[in-house]
Design a protein around this nucleic acid. Structure first.
Length: 351
DNA sequence: ACCTGGTATCAGCGACTACA
DNA sequence: TGTAGTCGCTGATACCAGGT
């Protein structure tokens, strides 16, 4: 590899906890990027770990996710080239609630469910002060780190798991995951240096979007490569339910209903990719819309709907497809282990 | 048959520690 | 400085119940 390709590699992406984060596969995926690729689109960016890898490789990165809390990570770490949070910013964020009658959503919804009273008051007051930061990049950074801190509190990183407070009073649970009883403020302060250190300038005009990919794709020109990492149907692929709390926190909805035991917001955003019944037709449309982008990389696995053969059939009208496979030699064990399954990358090139 | 909401799980990785 | 032992942390999960 040339120096040009590695000069940003000292920067380190703050490790994500998301289900399905491609962070651990980023080196493997990188080898399939053709030479002379300058402009790259990450269409379903999630944690932003792959967009970050593209940025480290010196590409101009266009990144997108239909959930805003993911877009904000994109603003903070991909689009942002220099803004970090300093001690005066932290002082602002940790000051008292600037408008308790307006900023009380987390307390009202999640006290006794995901957080104790003190903690939900703290995140409400933190949220009330975010707008005092001097620009949108600092604001995005602050919200990203707080979302990451909150994620540490729940099993599997899911806010569909309602046992956080039960576990927080169970000594064996606490022994296994000390974050359960640590104040969010402390977790935030631990993560802060990692996030600050991850901000860098690759001398490109990078941009993060918060759109449905089916609306964004037709508007983009001059993209050399697109990376698709769509939700994998067949198991639960409803990321809005898993991470509803984070989206509610950044959006601070005032016009939604909050339903069920988990207090998920309703109505949900339209995804188009999270139901078996819609997945194929929307993948078909998406591939059609990507006709003007020469190279496509599609992450997949061998346990999802539609199956790999169907995916290849959907792409074949437009591109040559090569199926690359990385076998997990050892999963992380346990019930959630994916040992023995494969990570798939469909490498799609011009005919 | 499919969708949605919810709970339960344990093996392995890797960071850390103790000891030589 | 090297290595064996310890232990914290995690999971595109597995499974079930109930609704449409």
């Amino acid at each position: 590899m040339l120096f040009e390709d590695t000069k940003y590699f000292d920067y380190k992406f703050p490790e994500p906890q998301y289900l399905g984060a491609k962070y651990i596969h980023r080196g493997w995926i990188a080898q399939f990027i053709p030479e002379r690729t300058n402009v790259v689109l990450d269409a379903f960016s999630g944690s932003q770990s792959i967009a970050y890898m593209f940025k480290q490789l010196g590409k101009k990165v266009i990144t997108n996710d239909f959930l805003n809390f993911n877009n904000l990570i994109g603003k903070a770490l991909i689009e942002n080239s220099s803004n970090k949070l300093d001690s005066s910013d932290i002082e602002l964020l940790f000051s008292e609630n600037s408008d308790p009658s307006k900023y009380n959503l987390m307390s009202e919804l999640y006290t006794g469910l995901f957080f104790c009273d003190e903690e939900s008051s703290f995140i409400d007051s933190f949220r009330s002060n975010v707008h005092k930061l001097s620009n949108p990049y600092k604001q995005a950074l602050a919200l990203s780190i707080m979302c990451r801190s909150m994620t540490r509190k729940v099993t599997m990183g899911h806010f569909a798991h309602t046992q956080a407070l039960v576990y927080a009073s169970d000594p064996t649970r606490i022994k296994r995951n000390r974050s359960l009883i640590r104040p969010l403020k402390n977790i935030f302060l631990d993560l802060l240096p990692e996030y600050n250190a991850a901000v860098f300038n690759n001398l490109k005009d990078n941009i993060s979007y918060n759109k449905n990919i089916l609306d964004l794709l037709p508007t983009l020109e001059d993209v050399d490569l697109v990376y698709f990492d769509p939700p994998y149907c067949n198991s639960h692929a409803d990321y809005q339910s898993f991470y509803h709390l984070l989206e509610t926190y950044v959006e601070y909805w005032k016009d939604k209903q909050f339903v069920n035991g988990i207090k998920r917001y309703e109505p949900k955003r339209y995804s188009g990719f999270d139901k078996n019944s819609e997945a194929i037709s929307n993948l078909q449309l998406m591939f059609k819309q990507a006709h003007h982008i020469p190279t496509w990389l599609v992450s997949y696995n061998d346990r999802s709907f539609p199956d790999i053969e169907t995916m290849v059939d959907l792409i074949s009208p437009y591109r040559n497809v090569k199926v690359e496979r990385k076998v997990y030699n050892s999963g992380r064990g346990g019930k959630g282990s994916v040992a023995g399954s494969s990570e798939i990358l469909l490498v799609c090139t011009m005919k």
